[in-house]
Amino acid sequence: MASPHVSGSRAGGSPVASSGANAGADRTTPGRIGLPIFVDGMAALIDRHPYDAFIVDLWGVIHDGEQPLPGVIEGLTMLRDAGKVVCLLSNAPRRAETVAARMREIGIDDGLYTHLLTSGEATHTALSDRPDAFHQSLGHRVLHIGPPRDVDTVSAPGLVPVERAADASFVLVTGIDDPDETVADYADVLADAAAHGLPMVCANPDLVVVAGGFRAICAGALATHYESLGGKVAYHGKPHAPVYDLCRSMITRTLAGRGVAAPRILGVGDAFRTDILGAHNAGLDSMLVTGHGIHTGDLGIDADGRPDPVKLEAAIEEFGLRPTLVMPGFRPA
């Protein structure tokens, strides 16, 4: 298994980086940066952009935590029927089967996608297999910061949960207990862990999530604060390249059986900081989905999910990242 990213880089800055193989392609350019190619829906994506496989975010693209987003079931069905491989990649700090079970509950069946990987699954595997020097050095006494629902990630063989930093050999952060909480609510426990020199494993690099229209902080916000205290953090999940390597391996194995030796892969998501940066780090083309999710309040989204071109260009400038494509929603058209 690939090693995690330890105390990693952040999105942002200049010059603007374009994703993947199409990075040098001509674009419509209302300003000096230029905008990505706009795609109305899945039909146009399949017809005009010959990708073999898709690495697709969940929250803000496939569902909102409570139900599938409009058109998603039909869009996934179109990709499946066109013979495309879909690998769902989520920064959910829970194991893949737990996430798959929740998707089945809200109407997203297993047959609509090919593979599923979560940052929680990658974390659990790393804490079980100890694939590198960092994980081998962690010990087994874990101070877990996160809700009880993340217990499957904490249940790696040999881990001994403890209640105090003084008794721990490392910290595992998976999230917050209550959606109203802020980083300030965890300041004391994080300061105590940093004072004891504990390394941290972050099972969800996201800073925030939008669930049912409500915005809440994620484990990544706590990990970022911990780094500011001088703590060392290993991240499992987007935007760090190792999870994309795992997805690419699954996709390659599937398509090798169909005679596709070098699959063309598109990374899809709603967030510049994780999905678009992650695709860029992995050398993949990327597609920003704008109709729902993290940037809807910033991009001047119209009733059809299309972003305001000026605001989109400003976001590209802010994050220093230009997606290859933009689509209003993961929908048929």
Rank of each mutant, 00 (worst) to 15 (best):
K311N: 06
I301M: 03
D192K: 13
L284S: 04
T290H: 02
D285G: 07
A194H: 03
V201L: 05
N281T: 06
F272C: 12
Y226H: 06
A223P: 02
L288H: 14
H236C: 05
T182D: 13
L299P: 11
V289M: 15
A223C: 10
F272A: 10
V243H: 08
V310E: 15
D298H: 06
G231M: 02
R258S: 08
H280Y: 03
P205I: 03
A219H: 00
I294S: 09
A256W: 02
L299Q: 10
D270P: 03
H295M: 14
D285W: 08
V189H: 05
V310D: 15
H236L: 05
L222T: 01
L190W: 06
H240E: 07
V210G: 05
V183K: 12
A194C: 02
Y244D: 09
K238W: 05
D308T: 02
H196C: 08
Y226T: 06
T254C: 11
T224C: 01
R264I: 05
D302W: 13
R258Y: 01
L222C: 00
G269A: 15
C202N: 12
D185V: 04
E313R: 11
L255D: 07
G269W: 15
E181V: 03
E181F: 11
D304G: 10
Y244R: 07
A271M: 09
T182W: 12
R273E: 11
A221M: 15
I217W: 11
L299A: 14
L277Y: 00
C202Y: 02
K238N: 09
